[in-house]
Design a protein around this nucleic acid. Sequence first.
DNA 1: GAAATGACCAAGA
DNA 2: GTCTTGGCCATTT
Length: 122
Amino acid sequence: MGSAGSGRGYATPMGEESTRRILDAIRAVPRGQVAGYGEIARRAGLPGRARLVARVLAENDDATLPWHRVLRSDGRIAFPEGSRGWREQCARLRAEGVRVENGRVRGQAAAATLDERLWRMD
DNA sequence: GAAATGACCAAGA
DNA sequence: GTCTTGGCCATTT
């Protein structure tokens, strides 16, 4: 593949390639299911870069992106309780049939199941 | 160029 | 169950 960037080898310092993959992975989450940052990062080909996923979400402008389906590994919402995004995510998850209890999502099993169900690499 | 920050994660107490 | 520590990486100051 041609170097999209100028002669500098890493002209693409994880700008669009990784970001695009992360967004793609998030979009791959089915409705009513949830995934963790680590899972998304791993699926995007960036193991250990969960923080990058968080940053991408914070910068994203896509209303069609199911960002509300992305939670912490504990199954908790990443936003501070009472915050705008917190309530938004909570409401949206509930609307999709996800059981949310006081900011905590009951469905860790769902996330684990997701791994087997959606991205199972035979 | 170094320090601080951030929608994080795993392990230990 | 909760809190703390160390570690990750990219952007900002």
